[in-house]
Amino acid sequence: MYATPPHECARVSEKARPNPEAKRARHGRYAWIIAGTAALLTAVLPGATLPAAATTQHGSADRIYVADSGSDSVSVISAETEKVVKTIAVGDLPTGVAVDPPRSRAYVTNLLADTVSVINTRTEEVITTITVGDEPRNVAVDSTRARAYVVNENSDSVSVINTNTNTVVATITVGDEPWGVAVDPGRARAYVSNETSQSVSVINTDTNAVIATVPVGVNPRGLAVDPSRARVDVTNFTDDTVSVINANTNVVTATVPAGNGPFAVEEEPSRARAYVADNNQSAVSVIDTTSNEVVALIHVGNDPSGVAVDESRDRAYVTNFGDGNVSVINTKKERVVATIRVGGGPIGIALVERDSKRNR
């Protein structure tokens, strides 16, 4: 069975930062994740909710980092053996994770702590914690500009982190209840989905200014960019669709039906594919990004919440929030070939590239 969709839960109009006790009480819909055991993750729990759609990336992986929201940890998976090789403790209810390969850093958003944990991916240890806005849900990294962009849902803002100094250098106001974020370094753009505004804010990452607001579907969550096709995909959770934005014109050029409860998305540019985690049907819809048609449906675990693609290994990795595991998809055969047990309530997922040297 499925968790109550986040948009159906009561929202709080108060935008002031509450104290930790009040914040946790307000997020009573997350309490079962934090205090429960692994068995609860597969139970039917009315009123429970998934914390956030995951922002992900594609590339060539040595390690896979998974944000385990129910365990306050990051599971480190070896891409070679497809086994968990380490667990890293982070902050309260981690939801998103993104990697800065040149600096050997991973950034993890801690939703209830209002912080970002910074992990050294060489030593796989937390080296610092950064205070950001209220309820940071997701993060994306632009390595060329040494910036990490953190969406703060209850602050209606994006915190911009300098990844050389690990300090917040700017705060950008966006739409109502921002949820996901993705970057296009070549175009100097960041895209932020605004759940309640039903829009995407387009940020010029050279000026930190919002330059456009693009209307999309109802309750937009995950985003992914295919720079080669000037394409931004946005999952609309309530509409069961994906909005396709032209990155050159900031106009929606197509709307693609994509399963039940599309929650997260990732691109595979080399095959012209987008992988959509359909949270309410335990499946991944595969979209042909040249025809904008769903060409395959791959069944995974319960409540799929995040996707990462390793094009060099022909693999897609999907976090299954309800099962506490990750489904490994062979992208050539379009079927699940392995399942990896991780921590409780996995959501965010990112790849750590092979050339990120360790233990130096």
Rank of each mutant, 00 (worst) to 15 (best):
V210R: 06
G259Y: 01
P227K: 13
S228K: 15
E268P: 12
F237H: 11
A212M: 03
S201L: 10
S228F: 14
N208R: 09
T249C: 00
G259M: 10
N250Y: 09
T196N: 15
I211Y: 04
T213A: 04
D233M: 14
V232W: 13
P220N: 08
P262G: 07
V251T: 13
I211V: 15
S201G: 06
N248G: 00
R221Q: 13
V242S: 00
P220F: 09
N260F: 15
P262F: 09
N236V: 08
V242N: 01
N219D: 13
V265K: 12
R231S: 01
N260V: 12
I245R: 07
D226Y: 14
D226L: 10
V256F: 03
P215G: 09
V214A: 00
P257I: 02
A209L: 05
G222A: 05
N219Y: 12
P262W: 07
E267C: 06
T235M: 01
P269K: 06
Q198H: 15
E268K: 08
V225C: 05
G259P: 04
I203H: 04
S201R: 11
V225W: 13
T249K: 11
R231V: 02
V242T: 02
D239G: 01
S270R: 12
V225T: 05
S243G: 01
Q198W: 15
S228T: 13
A258E: 03
P269W: 06
F237N: 07
P227I: 11
S199H: 07
S243T: 08
T241R: 00
V210N: 04
V252G: 02
E267M: 15
T196Q: 00
V214C: 04
D226I: 11
P257E: 00
A258R: 10
V251Q: 09
N260Y: 14
R229H: 11
T196V: 15
D226S: 10
R229W: 12
A224I: 02
F237C: 05
E268Q: 14
A258S: 09
V218E: 13
T213F: 08
N246M: 02
V234D: 01
A230Y: 05
V214N: 00
T253E: 13
V244A: 00
E266Q: 13
N204I: 14
S197K: 10
V214P: 06
A230W: 06
D226M: 07
S199E: 13
S197M: 08
N248W: 11
G217Q: 11
V200Y: 06
I203F: 06
D239F: 05
G261F: 02
D206H: 14
A209C: 09
N248I: 03
A247M: 03
D239E: 05
